[in-house]
Structure formats: structure tokens, C-alpha cells
């Protein structure tokens, strides 16, 4: 990698590390694991920086890599204690969760299956569109839309259970 490219990589990492760490934490609920996920993602990014460093879709690439790194981790045989979901929810209404405390919010999030949790983080925390979320998670927009109600029902039921 050329020195100028490496400088731009450094700038990008510095600028994105905070939000990436927070995103990773929302997925895994452990700061050390979050750091590992972000570090792995950024090293992968370094390897391809010469090709993608100037792409407008760089952020999307980074998010996708982080998500896949985390999902890969979840698929390891000794970590198969969570059920993978085929469905993706839309973002819930803030009013519906007004009674949920901050800590309960994270607990609720953790209780979602990995892909559903990823969808909530992508849409709710990163503010991505349905299209962007579907692209990162590798499913169609139609699938995302059609499964929205089911996902929200799941979250509503869990929120009700915290009362």
C-alpha cells in the first residue's frame, strides 16, 4: 500500500472507530469482543484498501464486513446457542418502548436472534434504509418488508414482558 493510501486508511479508521465499536457492542454486548470484531474488520479493510478506499460505498462495505465478521463468530460450533432468524424486522416505534429502561433496551436487543438483532442495529442505530439493510444482510427488500410485522410483534411481546 502506498504511503498516501495508508494515511487515508488511518484517517478513516480514526474517524469511524467510535461508531463501529458502539455498533459492535450492540451486537455482542461485550466491549472486548466488540473491539476484537472491529479490529478484525479494520484489518480486512486494510487488505482491500487500495481497491475500495476511494469508493463511495466504503461505509457500506465496512458495515457489511463487521456484520459478517460477527455472524461468522456466531456460527462457530461452540457458540451455537442462539437461533438464527430468517426474518428481519422494521424499526420499532419509540413510543412502544417508552416504558423500557435503557438497560432493558439492551437486554431486549440481546434476546433477539442474531440476524434480527443485526437488523435492529442497522436500522435503529445506524439509520440505514430497508434497501441498505437488506443488502448487508443478504436478503431482498421484499423479504424485509414482508417480515416487518412479525419482527415488531416479537419486540412488542418482549417489551410487554418487561413491565
Amino acid at each position: 500500500m502506498k504511503r498516501s493510501e495508508e494515511e487515508s486508511y488511518r484517517d478513516y479508521v480514526v474517524a469511524r472507530t467510535d461508531v463501529m465499536r458502539r455498533t459492535a457492542y450492540l451486537l455482542c454486548r461485550d466491549w472486548h469482543t466488540a473491539d476484537d470484531l472491529v479490529a478484525i474488520t479494520m484489518v480486512k479493510l486494510y487488505r482491500h484498501w487500495s481497491r475500495i478506499g476511494t469508493e463511495s460505498s466504503l461505509d457500506a462495505y465496512t458495515r457489511r464486513t463487521l456484520l459478517r465478521t460477527w455472524l461468522d463468530e456466531k456460527r462457530r460450533p461452540w457458540r451455537r446457542h442462539e437461533e438464527l432468524a430468517e426474518t428481519l424486522p422494521d424499526t420499532p416505534d419509540p413510543v412502544e418502548f417508552a416504558v423500557v429502561s435503557r438497560a432493558q433496551l439492551l437486554d431486549l436487543l440481546s434476546s433477539l436472534p442474531p440476524r434480527r438483532r443485526a437488523a435492529v442495529v442497522l436500522r435503529g442505530y445506524l439509520g440505514l434504509s430497508l434497501e441498505e439493510t437488506a443488502e448487508i444482510l443478504g436478503c431482498s427488500v421484499g423479504t424485509v418488508k414482508s417480515q416487518t410485522a412479525r419482527g415488531l410483534d416479537t419486540l412488542r411481546a418482549m417489551a410487554a414482558g418487561t413491565d
Binding site: 450492540l26 419509540p94 418502548f97 433496551l105
Partner: peptide, 11 residues
């Protein structure tokens, strides 16, 4: 549910 809520929850 928005970014601010998550950030507050993370502390």
C-alpha cells in the same frame, strides 16, 4: 427507537 436511545443505553 433511535441512535440517541442506544447511545444513552450504552453509557
Amino acid at each position: 427507537m433511535d441512535k440517541r436511545l442506544f447511545d444513552e443505553a450504552m453509557g
